[in-house]
Amino acid sequence: MELVLVVLIGILYATGIFLILRRSMVKLLLGIALLGNGTNILIFLLGNIVKGSPPIIGENVNILREIYADPVPQALILTAIVISFGLTAFAIVLLHRVYAFLDSDDLDDLNTPDEDI
């Protein structure tokens, strides 16, 4: 399964990069979201993935023993997911503003540094 996830990360990154290189701002945004997802899985994978044993301490024990999923990448990813929502929201609003101002979705139209956007 790890190998499948490795390939999946590659696909997510490739798609993300391809979208970022488009001229459309909406595609740019979606591309960034995909890159974020790919990175999340990357971090997840690096913590050694384990099936069916979440990092939760059982009823009558005080310490996690045996095999369990690594909690550290999970905490990292959880943070990343929430932050990426903030980022997406902000980017969408920026996009919205730019569109309202320029009446265009074309990134090339942004190539007017003197204008007050």
């Binding site: 929430v82 929502f85 903030g86 929201a89 969408i92 609003v93 919205h96």
Partner: peptide
Amino acid sequence: VVVGAVLNILFTI
């Protein structure tokens, strides 16, 4: 904070 920020973003938009 999460409730406030998310609702603020969505409702403003």
